[in-house]
């Protein structure tokens, strides 16, 4: 029973990691940029989610607003920060990204204050019985459900629609895709929009669990998501999903049984090291 409960907690955590890391892997797959500032968008998503929920009383509305606003900001970041650097070494974009991340953190502190914000009336606190005495809160159920729905929609988009196929073609070979009349720039905008919106959704989900969004909320996410996409095989969507779930579950059991030896982050990275020793290329080949 406890094992099943811990597995469930691991899946909840994995679902959040998946939503954060997916945007990162999409952007890396398309542009070869390690978008560290992605984690700041995750934090911003949490802030908007809390503020709009507190103002309107509707979590669903807040989630949509948060995803759209952060998605648009993602496009802006690409347009203003990354696009001018595309011809340069990827290191330049990485440094720009780290700078952006720090600027965002300090910006949150100035705008929203250093204390952090909470839901005035935390939503979805009640519990559901999954049968056999396995209880889970509605918020955790929503997180897993949301992740499954969002990722299914994404899978459908990328394999069944013209936009999705154009996207995959651009990832594989931008030049040939372009010669077939695909507007590469549009694909990149779409990519940043979707990736950033997913991070925003993850931000709202995390605040549902913790009821606290702080300026530094993205700090752990920034490097954990990098570890996950490396483990997944840089640029592989499938790999990222599997890696996110695996790390979520390893952390869940690890914090309880060996947490006094290795803390949660150390566990995740120890797992990463061991996994890469066995499979240096990551779990999956890039799509």
């Amino acid at each position: 029973m406890l094992a099943l409960d811990l597995l469930l907690q691991g899946i909840v955590q994995g679902a959040i990691y998946a939503l954060i890391a997916l945007g990162l892997t999409l952007i890396y797959g398309l542009l070869r940029i390690l978008h560290v500032a992605h984690a700041a968008l995750f934090t911003l998503g949490g802030y908007i989610g809390v503020i709009v929920t507190n103002q309107t009383g509707s979590l669903a509305f807040a989630l949509v607003v948060s995803m759209v606003l952060v998605g648009v900001l993602g496009i802006l970041i690409y347009r203003v920060a990354y696009k001018p650097l595309l011809g340069k070494s990827p290191l330049v974009a990485l440094i720009a990204s780290i700078g952006l991340f720090i600027a965002f953190e300090e910006g949150f502190r100035i705008v929203f204050g250093s204390y952090g914000l909470s839901f005035e009336d935390p939503p979805l606190r009640t519990q559901v019985d999954l049968g056999g005495g396995l209880l889970i809160s509605h918020s955790r159920l929503l997180i897993v459900g949301m992740a499954v729905v969002i990722l299914s929609i994404l899978a459908w988009l990328s394999t069944r629609t013209r936009t999705g196929i154009a996207w995959k073609a651009t990832v594989t070979d931008p030049q040939i895709a372009s010669s077939f009349g695909i507007n590469i720039e549009r694909v990149r905008y779409l990519n940043f929009f979707i990736g950033s919106a997913l991070a925003a959704a993850a931000g709202v989900m995390v605040v549902l669990l913790t009821n606290l969004v702080e300026p530094t909320m993205g700090a752990v996410a920034s490097y954990k998501a990098l570890a996950i996409i490396v483990l997944g095989g840089l640029g592989s969507v499938r790999g990222t999903l599997v890696a996110a779930l695996a790390i979520g579950i390893v952390e869940s059991f690890g914090t309880v049984y060996i947490g006094h030896i290795l803390d949660r982050d150390a566990l995740a990275f120890a797992f990463l090291v061991v996994a890469l020793m066995v499979r240096p290329q990551g779990l999956f080949k890039a799509d």
Partner: peptide, 21 residues
Amino acid sequence: GEYDYSIKDREFGPIVSKVKA
């Protein structure tokens, strides 16, 4: 039972499950 967490942790799902058990 004794459980450690780091100062960066805000999500305690697994520890909560274990303590509850």
